[in-house]
């Protein structure tokens, strides 16, 4: 038997250790707002979390304290979607970056059976138009060159992108190929990477032949002169990269608008949902965001609350139809 004094001392030591060690554990989760970027850092979703959400919301004082950004890559956003639906369903302080890619995946029903109605859609605050790029030394000088190669030798024309197979980056190429009259769309050699950033390394190293992604992922590399943008999938040229031709100019009438926005967990209170809608609206209309989005190759694109939910529903229907038409989905 120990003497009582010794036991008390023992317990005190124990609590002291507990206190110091638990300060460590405690860091696992912040109590304040969080934005999940469903891909690794450096890509489009990451940008949506870090700039309009964490930075602008913080600067404008729309949220308490600052926002933590969590990168949760995997399955073209499916991992984060499943996480939010199954584990964070009532987290009032959570928003998640979403984009056309999210809608595309939902349209193809590849989020393990999760539906668009499993979350609530807050709003979109900009759009990033699709782009096709190649290494600066590439043999492909125009979009037509690339399409010819895809027609003649699809297996040997590797195209990389930041979405998983069947995701938005992949779909853009398929839609373009379809427009160009390529019949065997499944033969097109698309390779999926965690995000646009890592996919870009494949171009820089010349392992891959072409990159499909969004303009904002390309601006820096274009300025540095590492790559050549073959086409942008926008209605008109974009000020951030004025020299890049649209696909339409080159005879392929394809527009791929990747809107950027947010969703929140389904079971939060209506009041909080409206609060988030209000916050996102304010960010979208701010001059700070106008400036930042233009710098990063984003075009204006606004839709909020109920309108946005309807818009997303429509997009999902469209993708489902395209995917079926292309023989990509049963």
């Amino acid at each position: 038997m120990r003497k009582p004094m010794q036991s008390i001392l023992g317990i005190l030591t124990g609590t002291a250790i507990a206190a110091t060690t638990m300060l460590g554990v405690a860091m696992a989760k912040p109590g304040n707002t969080e934005c999940i970027a469903p891909a690794g850092a450096g890509g489009g979703w990451d940008f949506t979390c870090r700039v309009p959400a964490a930075q602008v919301m913080g600067d404008m004082g729309l949220i308490n304290g600052t926002m933590a950004v969590t990168n949760m890559s995997g399955a073209g956003g499916g991992k984060a979607y499943a996480h939010v639906v199954t584990k964070r369903g009532d987290d009032e302080n959570l928003i998640v970056a979403a984009s056309m890619a999210t809608a595309a995946r939902l349209g193809q029903n590849v989020y393990s059976g999760f539906k668009a109605s499993d979350v609530r859609w807050v709003g979109a605050l900009g759009a990033d138009y699709g782009a096709i790029a190649v290494h600066k030394d590439s043999q492909f000088k125009t979009l037509g060159d690339l399409i010819t190669a895809m027609k003649d030798n699809p297996r040997r024309t590797a195209i990389v992108g930041g979405s998983s197979a069947g995701g938005w980056d992949h779909l853009k190429v398929l839609i373009l190929a379809d427009k160009a009259g390529i019949s065997d769309l499944k033969a097109i050699n698309y390779i999926s990477f965690d995000n646009g950033g890592t996919a870009m390394l494949e171009i820089l190293s010349k392992r891959a032949d072409a990159f499909t992604g969004d303009i904002s992922e390309l601006v820096e590399y274009e300025k540095k002169g590492n790559i050549r943008i073959l086409a942008i999938l926008a209605p008109d040229r974009i000020p951030a990269v004025p020299s890049a031709k649209t696909a339409k100019e080159q005879g392929y009438d394809v527009i791929g608008a990747n809107w950027r926005g947010f969703y929140v967990p389904k079971n939060i209170s209506n009041a909080r949902y409206n609060e988030w809608v209000d916050i996102v609206t304010k960010v979208a209309n701010s001059s700070q965001w106008a400036d930042l989005s233009a710098k990063n190759g984003l075009a204006p694109f606004k839709s909020f609350g109920k309108d946005f939910e309807n818009f997303v529903g429509g997009q999902i229907g469209k993708v489902a139809q395209i995917s079926t038409d292309l023989g990509f989905m049963k």
């Binding site: 890559s73 995997g74 399955a75 073209g76 499916g78 991992k79 499943a82 996480h83 199954t86 584990k87 995946r105 590849v110 989020y111 393990s112 998983s164 197979a165 069947g166 995701g167 999926s192 965690d194």
Partner: peptide, 20 residues
């Protein structure tokens, strides 16, 4: 959990907790 390349769920046996 979910396969990173194609987004299908693997060996989760329908358990939501395993999707992640």
């Amino acid at each position: 959990g979910i396969d990173s390349t194609t987004g299908v769920s693997r060996l989760t046996f329908g358990m939501m907790e395993l999707y992640d």
